[in-house]
Nucleic acid binder design. Structure first.
Length: 236
DNA sequence: AAGGGATCCAACCGCTCCACT
DNA sequence: AAGTGGAGCGGTTGGATCCCT
């Protein structure tokens, strides 16, 4: 009788993260199912892939979503439905899992509330119009549709976030004394959605990226070997 | 201080898609 | 054309943390 190899589940330990990062930096991504065995991990390929894609891979932005990102998600969810990967493709450096979680925990409720609000506002307007129709038949319907101007933040603004060393998994053995500042300036109003199409292209390298990006880079420079540069670049 | 409900989010599961043979 | 295996996706779960009483 052949015993199935033990496959660990649950939260990843810093040691496992380190093994996966080190392996991918050295050999790249070639086969998720085989990889854990060679990397010395008792995990399924799926688990490794998920961990890498949603957490360890460089260029991932974590933390609070900006107002623009929220509006993008709401807009795209309306347009595309729950196609999180398609939505994530339009939000540079955000993972589909992150967007999905954010939608399920925050945005869904907000959208439902806003819908209820505007629905009741429409009903109220309608009923008050009906009441007043006798003496004010010519007054137009006032629909309570929110515009970008209803939101508290300015449409064009910049923000900066400083990552602490705890954000970047110190356990992988990187100098944890650094901090990183990201700064982004968004465009506003008319061409906002059009601009989003090119959002990724507007990001300069190293700008608005997660600490993992720096982390990966510092390791990659260390490990990079032109002779072995055969595997696909995991950065791509 | 304690405990219990609410919330968040990393991770799992099952399914589909797609490339290859 | 059919079968197979790997990758990717979206829904869901469960543990950790937060917050309120």
């Amino acid at each position: 009788m052949v015993r199935k190899p033990y496959v660990k589940k649950g939260t990843w330990t810093p040691d496992e993260d380190q093994k996966l990062i080190a392996y991918i930096m050295r050999y790249g991504i070639w086969n998720w199912n085989e990889m854990p065995r060679f990397a010395g991990l008792q995990r399924s390929g799926k688990s490794c892939r998920l961990r890498w894609m949603n957490y360890l891979r460089p260029n991932i932005r974590r933390g609070n979503f900006t107002r623009e990102e929220e509006e993008t998600i709401i807009h795209l969810q309306k347009k595309l439905g729950n196609r999180w990967s398609a939505i994530a493709a339009r939000l540079p450096n955000r993972t589909d899992n992150d967007i999905k979680n954010y939608w399920n925990t925050c945005l869904k409720k907000r959208v439902m509330l806003e819908n209820n609000k505007s629905a009741s506002a429409t009903t109220e307007t309608k009923s008050s119009m009906e009441e007043n129709s006798a003496d004010d038949a010519d007054s137009p319907a006032v629909l309570n549709i929110p515009t970008m101007a209803d939101f508290p933040e300015p449409l064009t603004y910049s923000y900066s976030t400083t990552f602490s060393s705890s954000d970047c998994h110190q356990t992988v053995g990187v100098d944890n004394s650094y901090s990183m500042t990201m700064r982004e300036t968004f465009v506003s109003t008319e061409n906002y959605w059009e601009r989003l199409e090119f959002f990724g292209a507007d990001m300069t390298e190293g700008e608005a990226l997660s600490p993992n990006y720096q982390l990966w880079h510092s390791h990659h420079e260390h490990y990079y070997d032109h002779v072995d540069d055969f595997w696909p670049n995991p950065l791509i």
